[in-house]
């Protein structure tokens, strides 16, 4: 990262903005702040940030609306902050195009890790060389020849298992909701059948992970969806 990346914080609470800015500057990032939704949109358009941290409860509207507007013209990664109980608003934000979420209160270390992961993901996606080989742990996936090996030995996956895995790889580091995964892998008619997804994910973990009940790579976002760990 030669030039410092720019991060836009859209958050109405000054005290939170203050420590988030400090945490990001500690990472060597340039920080732009906005206190309202309209201000946030203007900043996002003019500063062209590399990442946006977006609070959902803004004084002039719901952050999800900003996200929907933004996704019309930008693919910049967005991390959402939520202070609500329940998972509904997080799922809504992820379905609307957010890449990750944090529930308040969160620790600085957690925030920095998420920001790093999203920036790296974005950089590699925009980078010229897109490798057809994807690695995590002892597993190597050849996306060109559609083969999977573990510790060098070929690993047999069924068609659906492979499709599930390749979907997660395509969005590695991003949280994918149940809806998004079911739609991608099974098709729009199966959006409500979350138990298909859960059963297949268990199968996949048993083949790919060292310990299926303490997964290292195929992570569960409880009540929301799954993610393939970035590192």
């Amino acid at each position: 990262m030669g030039i410092a990346s720019t991060v836009l914080i859209v958050e109405d609470d000054v005290a939170i903005r203050r420590f988030v800015r400090a945490a990001l500057e500690e990472e060597g990032l340039q920080v732009v702040e906005a206190g309202t939704m309209s201000r946030g949109l203007i900043e996002a358009a003019t500063r062209q940030p590399d990442l946006i941290i977006l609070d959902l409860g803004l004084p002039d509207g719901n952050g999800i609306n900003l996200l929907k507007d933004l996704r019309g013209w930008a693919s910049v990664p967005v991390i959402v902050l939520s202070a609500r109980v329940g998972e509904t608003d997080k799922i809504q934000a992820l379905d609307a195009g957010a890449d990750d979420y944090l529930t308040k209160p969160f620790s600085i270390g957690e925030l920095q890790a998420r920001v790093r992961a999203q920036l790296r993901r974005h950089a590699s996606r925009n980078g010229a060389v897109q490798s057809s080989l994807e690695r995590f742990g002892a597993v190597e996936v050849d996306l060109l020849n559609r083969t999977v090996t573990r510790n060098g030995a070929p690993l047999h996956l069924t068609k659906l298992e492979y499709r599930l895995l390749s979907t997660l790889i395509a969005h590695r580091g991003k949280v994918l909701t149940h809806r998004q995964l079911l739609n991608e892998v099974w098709g729009p008619a199966y959006i409500e059948h979350t138990h298909y997804l859960r059963i297949y994910m268990t199968h996949l973990r048993q083949k790919v992970e060292d310990n299926a009940s303490q997964p290292r790579w195929l992570l569960t976002e409880t009540g929301i969806g799954y993610r393939l760990a970035a590192e």
Binding site: D13, A15, I16, R18, F19, V20, A23, A83, K104, P105, F106, S107, I108
Partner: peptide, 10 residues
Amino acid sequence: RTPLTALTGN
């Protein structure tokens, strides 16, 4: 949660 976040974060 909002003031708590500010408190712990800061």
